[in-house]
Simulated scan of single mutants.
Amino acid sequence: MSIFSRLAEQKIEEAIRNGEFDNLPLAGKKLPIDDLSHIPEDLRMSYRIMKNAGYVPEEVTLRKECVQLYDLLGATRNEGEQEQLKRKLNEKHLRLQLLLEQRGLSGNSAFTQYESKVRERLTGKE
């Protein structure tokens, strides 16, 4: 056991003795699942940090907006509104493609591994 592991164990045992873990919000309950299994292992920590900070990458936001516009387009019967929504959808889609190319994600193998999972989550079709 390394010195850092021993120090961590000592701090945990000390906190238990001092009762610092007694009244935690989820004490005795299952922890909520933070499933990042669809994200490559080397990217999980950075995504977790961004998620906990409330940051959503722009490409995720753009994908979500594209899905919403596509759904609105399917529900709209007014031709004027349909044209307006198609134009917005095309603009968002082009912006997304440019952003993915700029960030090197369009041909990135790590991105292609989890891209379908992101799409499934955004569209709700799991």
Rank of each mutant, 00 (worst) to 15 (best):
S2F: 09
S2H: 05
I3D: 00
R6P: 14
L7Y: 03
L7T: 13
E13Q: 04
E14C: 14
I16R: 05
R17S: 02
R17P: 01
D22G: 05
L24D: 03
L24F: 04
P25Q: 06
A27V: 14
G28P: 04
K30R: 00
L31H: 07
P32L: 02
I33W: 11
D35E: 06
L36T: 02
S37W: 00
H38M: 14
H38P: 03
P40F: 11
E41P: 02
E41R: 05
E41D: 03
L43I: 13
R44T: 08
M50A: 13
M50H: 15
K51N: 14
K51F: 15
A53H: 07
V56H: 07
E58D: 09
E59K: 05
L62R: 01
L62Q: 00
E65L: 09
E65N: 08
E65M: 10
C66L: 13
C66Y: 03
Q68V: 12
Q68L: 09
Y70C: 08
L73H: 08
G74R: 15
A75C: 11
R77F: 09
E79R: 13
E81R: 15
E83F: 12
Q84T: 12
Q84F: 14
L85V: 10
K86P: 03
K86T: 05
R87L: 09
R87H: 09
R87T: 14
L89E: 05
N90T: 00
N90M: 05
N90Q: 00
N90I: 01
K92Q: 08
H93K: 10
L94E: 06
L94I: 14
L94M: 13
R95W: 07
L96F: 04
L99R: 00
L99G: 01
E101Y: 13
E101A: 15
E101P: 11
G104D: 11
G104M: 08
L105Y: 03
L105Q: 00
G107V: 01
S109Y: 02
S109K: 08
F111R: 02
Q113C: 10
Q113R: 13
Y114A: 05
E115F: 12
S116K: 07
E120W: 04
L122C: 04
L122H: 01
L122G: 05
T123I: 08
E126M: 15
